[in-house]
Design a protein around this nucleic acid. Sequence first.
RNA 1: GGCGCGGUGGCAGAGUGGUUAUGCAGCGGACUGCAACUCCGUGUACGCCGGUUCGAUUCCGACCCGCGCCUCCA
Length: 460
Amino acid sequence: MIRIYNTLTQQKEEFQPIQPGKVRMYVCGMTVYDYCHLGHARVLVAFDVITRYLRHRGYDVHYVRNITDIDDKILRRADENGEPFDALTDRMIQAMHEDEQKLGVLAPTEEPRATDYIDEIIAMIRVLIAKDHAYAADNGDVYFSVNSFDGYGKLSKKKLEDLLAGARVDVEQAKKSPADFALWKAAKPGEVSWPSPWGDGRPGWHIECSAMSTRCLGDTFDIHGGGPDLLFPHHENEIAQSECATGHHFVNTWMHAGAIRVNKEKMSKSLGNFFTIREILDKYPPEVVRYFLVSSHYRSQVDYSEDNLAEAGRTLERLYHALRGVVPAKNVPEGEFDRQFHEAMDDDFNTAGSISVLHGAASELNQARRDGHDDRAAELAAVLVRLGAVLGILQQDPEAFFKAGVEGDLSAEQIEAMIQARADARKAKNFAEADRIRDELQEKGIILDDSREGTSWRRG
RNA sequence: GGCGCGGUGGCAGAGUGGUUAUGCAGCGGACUGCAACUCCGUGUACGCCGGUUCGAUUCCGACCCGCGCCUCCA
């Protein structure tokens, strides 16, 4: 029985998919005008792990993650760059896919783009106007009327009067209420636009997700997720639009990831304190970044720092060390470690807890190996790889993991030759020469591991 | 101001009404030519004050502190 924290009810609930055995999930993806930063990575990885675990537990998961490829920021950036907006978005989408792949994020089942759903968006706006939940204003925009929806604020726990009290002064004159938001934005001269019953324009930010999610998954579906800053207004507005348009309850379980912080402040575009995935991958192996993200619960805030990434690297090395030199057994039945792992993950995807189970298995593996229980070691290695797969870690060949690292100036052949020279020196009891070789390698970032079977190496 | 979340050992980070998180770092030992790696062992903890209870880090209340949303942001 899986329990999930639901933002809507503010408590953990037993997860009951609408259709037994099937999960329909929608996650708000990227607005593609810049490279992904660590905050995006957190959401990508969090929902990747959630998808992997649900599938691991036998669910058929239909995972939809959208791409916002038309919006103010995209137009502005394209304009600054002097390029067509779709050249910019195509480039950023490709970059996003590269980043995802490096982080081991599996592709969603569907990846709809806003500009491919203009017809559905217009159709939904028509319905909202027909039902008096929206109105076309004099300036060519179409707005959603928040007063027309009693449930407005139920997700973010905000009261409409509080929102109005805090409204900014520069409220768009055309709005009937300051809290109303745009469904359709009239095009300014020269802007890219699509024809509509209300004139040429483009969709507002929130409506695309309502149109795409209900089109791909139906009026009501199981899980809707996203980053912490989407809770309000984006998800609140999605609920309003969708429930008014379809007349049905929109989403059963709302899930929100925690923020990534830098020096106690949220990493965000507007603060400018963000690190792109690419910058971070220049310094740390992708799996280390993923391990760092998975090592804390998806809802908690996590601090980005060099120290934290370095520690994640050391910890991941420990797990790969356990796997090194062991051939995982085949067809190992589920056992105690699997049970503990599931227990942790069943509790709102407690990846931090599940990782401690992995460490327990690694310890036992090391002991089995030390005691010559090779069969047991091979079994545990299989368990480690199997459970690691759910978190998206430990899937590399251990030798590749240790030797990949950052490119040094020594080739594997040269390193092997130096190790052989050192072995000869040691045999001749010329320890000064042996240590000199070891030090030289260490200076170049190569660490030697001696064992009874011989010497292996890794990039430190 | 409104709404919401959180304060755990040197650090990171789970969890629980009474019993070991886990990892990193440290310390002692085994292994080693010496180390590293690995293994074994090991110390340090639950913001503050009350309350409930046989017993609270865990439940309740107040307080202090930090953070997030309320404006584009994952």
